[in-house]
Amino acid sequence: MLEFIIFFVFAAIAVIFALAVILHRNPVVGALSLVGSFFALAVMYVLLEAPFLAVLQIIVYAGAIMVLFLFVIMLLNLQHVREEHTRPVQQFLGYTGSALFGIAIVYYLAKYAAMQLPNGPFNADARAVGVELFQAYIFPFEMVSILLLAAIVGALLLSGRLPAKTRAAETEVAP
């Protein structure tokens, strides 16, 4: 009973904040709403008996990725960007197409996806995930570390801030 109340409350919070992300015109509000949505999703993960991944979601997504988003939005002063409405047909098609897609998926899931619940406890704490990660999935684990290195080097190169280069024209940060 309590689980259902928690599920519905936090599902509503996740959906409302997600709608705020796509509907509000200020990207700063969108970024903070996305953080709220991630917190609600972390609660969902706890309900799915995955506490390790719930905390990892907060550490990685809400605590690192969204901080990166906020930094970019704040430093590039993007909160005043106003989108002009020059493509109303495509916007209308986008809204209706995604709404139809959504309604179709939800309908078919509600109709056909009901499954019997498993019984018994599910031991999914950090130790179990760690053991699985380092035994069956050790190769992807090492590859992900190389991929993160590639991402770091790529981000450094793309933003142009190599230490040896002198920058001629700097964009002034104006609050």
Binding site: V35, V55, L56, I58, I59, G63, A64, V67, L70, P175
Partner: peptide, 28 residues
């Protein structure tokens, strides 16, 4: 909690938001 200390790290990374938002929203 069985993931005790990870909660500490998760919530400590929320402290960054306070500082960033305070600094940026002051128009200074």
């Amino acid at each position: 909690l069985n993931v005790g200390i990870l909660l500490v790290f998760a919530l400590a990374s929320m402290g960054v938001y306070g500082v960033t938002m305070a600094g940026w929203s002051s128009n200074n």
